[in-house]
């Protein structure tokens, strides 16, 4: 009995998908945690430039979650009741989106997570980058420049956020491989450049001449540390400084030699990849349109039905900074 019901439901779904393909546009929502800050802006812009949107296959609406899980929840309710076909979801935190996903699931709306995972098995699929790896990569790079030994300080994100937890895990994993590297300080600056600036100034006072490397869990804070180093009259080139995300200012700082490394969190691939995955569930025999699958051969399409897609991190160093800068200019041009 139950099997029959399931079968009928599945049949209905297939049929309706078939009708949809026949002519109408797909309504897809981009649910961001908030449109302030460079990353989410790039993410939204990339979606708007996805070929499917440009060609008119998809009717895209971007939602501003205003850094509030309850706002996102009500936006999900709106989208579900208005008959959206799919939602591309960037939750504010790993624990904060499960209820929203359940709402969409109950209304048979496809939800593809992007950038930040949701603690829910109702998520249709997820595309993002592994924060543990980025934390590991940046710490490795800093230690490498220090010659495998010396003292580092770690400037952390807001304590308890999944990005902070995972990047810290990666940071410490790399440091554990080098017994001669010591962590002098590890404190939060809440992703804020101004806070990191004051923190680093005080550390430079407390540990004069002892700090060799700065691990910023994002670029903004790494840039704050760079400012503090300059303000103290020291040479930035004597420090190994790395951050994560690849914001424009950080690419610039790498170009100028003020930062050694920023790790690009690829907003374009995370956004466009998510849309491709969603369309893969909606359109029969869909072939992905975004360039991201070509950019990262190691990220396989696999018919679009994988549960997890891992967008690799791209280290931005002096070698590729110019190229990345040009790409960014293209994306932010209005």
């Amino acid at each position: 009995m139950r099997k029959t019901v399931l079968f009928l439901a599945a049949l209905l779904l297939v049929l309706s998908a078939g009708f949809a393909q026949a002519g109408q546009k797909y309504r897809i929502g981009g649910a961001t945690y908030g449109l302030v800050g460079e990353y989410m802006k790039l993410w939204a812009t990339a979606l708007e430039r996805h070929p499917a949107v440009v060609q008119g296959l998809v009717d895209l609406t971007i939602f501003d979650g205003r850094y509030d899980a309850s706002v996102q929840q009500s936006q999900f309710e709106t989208m579900s009741s208005q008959g959206y076909d799919a939602i591309l979801f960037v939750p504010i935190d790993i624990e904060a989106g499960a209820a929203a996903v359940a709402t969409a699931h109950a209304n048979d709306v496809i939800v593809v997570g992007s950038n930040t995972r949701v603690n829910s098995d109702l998520l249709t699929a997820y595309i993002g980058s592994n924060d543990v790896i980025s934390g590991y990569m940046e710490a490795k790079a800093v230690i490498a420049k220090m010659g495998g030994k010396g003292n580092v300080v770690i400037i952390e994100g807001p304590i308890g956020q999944s990005a902070q937890i995972e990047r810290r895990e990666g940071n410490l994993k790399a440091i554990a491989e080098y017994p001669e590297v010591k962590v002098l300080e590890m404190r939060t600056a809440n992703w804020s450049r101004a806070e990191a600036l004051a923190l680093m100034e005080n550390w430079l006072t407390a540990h004069p001449g002892q700090i060799d490397g700065v691990i910023g869990q994002n670029d903004e804070m790494a840039l704050g540390a760079v400012q503090a180093i300059k303000a103290a009259g020291l040479d930035v080139k004597d420090f190994a400084v790395a951050g994560i995300d690849g914001v424009s200012d950080a690419i610039m700082a790498v170009k100028n030699g003020e930062m050694d490394l920023s790790i690009l969190q690829d907003a374009v691939s995370q956004a466009q990849g998510a849309l491709d995955i969603a369309l893969g569930y909606l359109v029969k025999d869909y072939q992905p349109m975004s360039d991201c699958w070509k950019d990262y051969p190691e990220m396989k399409w696999n018919g679009g039905k994988d549960k997890n897609y891992d967008v690799p991190w791209t280290p931005i160093t002096k070698d590729n900074a110019d190229e990345q800068w040009a790409k960014r200019q293209d994306l932010t041009a209005r």
Binding site: V36, G37, S192, R193, A194, L197, L223, Q227, A231, D249
Partner: peptide
């Protein structure tokens, strides 16, 4: 002052 100190006009500054 904050802009000149952080080398960037940050829209989230001063929260």
């Amino acid at each position: 002052l904050l802009t000149a100190r952080t080398s960037a006009g940050l829209p989230q500054a001063g929260m």
